[in-house]
Structure formats: C-alpha cells, structure tokens
Amino acid sequence: MKAFAVAVIAAIGLGLAAAYVMDSNRVLAYQAFSTSGARVSHPGTNLVGPQWSGDIPMPSGHKPHGA
C-alpha cells in the first residue's frame, strides 16, 4: 500500500512537472501563426513576380509555404 501511495504521488508530481515545463514552452496557435501586420509575400518579392508573369524568383534554398 505504501508503494502504491508513493507511486501515485510520484505520478502526480511528474505530471505536474511535465505540465509546468510544457506550458512554459508552449506557444499558442494564435501566437505562433500570426503576424504583426499584413504581408502579401516574402520580403523582396510580390505575388506576380517582377515581370507580372507569375514567375517569382525565390532565394536559393528557399522552400515556399505549403510545398
């Protein structure tokens, strides 16, 4: 019975510790996926490209959103 009580206390203690650590490092979706202002494209580019052709040059190694 003593072992069971110690085990339950340990489980609750570890659970609370996990809750504290996770909540301390958690970024809510509305924080993680929001911007401070409107942004229509990546810096230095626009939605239609410099020639208005839809051909948008990307910096080397850049992966577009959703790809």
Partner: peptide, 9 residues
C-alpha cells in the same frame, strides 16, 4: 496545395 503567405504553411 496552394500558396499562402501567413506563417502557418
């Protein structure tokens, strides 16, 4: 897949 400019790809 489309293309978005919001942070959530």
């Amino acid at each position: 897949v489309g293309r978005v400019t919001i942070p959530d790809g």
